[in-house]
């Protein structure tokens, strides 16, 4: 079944701020096998000029409310997660994310287009702190395998 084009152009704002916590940064860093002291040791992070633990650049993916970097899990979109693979991902950081940041993510589904038998969904993100500072932007492409309508 094809995806619902009505979703194109819609934006979704995280309902509550995402609180970047020290333990979450440490847990994420352990999960990517990275023992960089700036991810684990508050004193090391402060000595390097940061206010608190630094988050790895790709930590931003965990601050998006929906699964898989999607802005929404609304079934009306018609997406079957079992058919989804990640196509592309990009983050541009205005400054590093640190423990204590409160992030509000605005995700916009900017396009759904058919590429052969697949459908490609493009989502862009903006991460602002709860005080309105833009911290990062990002973009994500997901591929929904085999859901494009056959060409007549």
């Amino acid at each position: 079944m094809s995806l619902n084009q009505d979703f194109v152009g819609r934006s979704f704002v995280s309902p509550v701020p995402f609180q970047v916590g020290r333990e979450h940064i440490r847990q994420f860093a352990r999960a990517i096998g990275d023992d960089n002291p700036l991810y684990h040791d508050v004193e090391a992070a402060k000595a390097a000029g940061y206010s608190d633990l630094v988050a790895p650049p790709t930590f931003l993916i965990s601050a998006i409310p929906g699964a898989l970097g999607l802005p929404t899990d609304d079934p009306a979109l018609g997406l079957d997660y079992a058919l989804v693979v990640h196509g592309e991902q990009r983050f541009t950081l205005r400054r590093p994310v640190v423990a204590g940041d409160e992030l509000i993510t605005t995700s916009t589904l900017t396009g759904i287009r058919a590429v052969g038998r697949n459908e490609v969904l493009v989502t862009t993100y903006r991460y602002d702190t709860s005080s309105g500072e833009e911290v990062a932007v990002g973009a994500c492409t997901l591929v929904s395998r085999g859901t494009a309508p056959p060409r007549g």
Binding site: I32, D34, L38, P56, P57, T58, G69, Q89, L93
Partner: peptide, 27 residues
């Protein structure tokens, strides 16, 4: 995919000596 991306990014954060030095990463 994001774990593979994180692993690739790590080469850069370790090289730069400061993960905050990474301004953009895309794959």
């Amino acid at each position: 995919g994001m774990l593979t991306m994180a692993t690739a990014t790590r080469l850069v954060t370790d090289w730069a000596g400061d993960p905050g030095a990474v301004l953009e990463v895309g794959v």
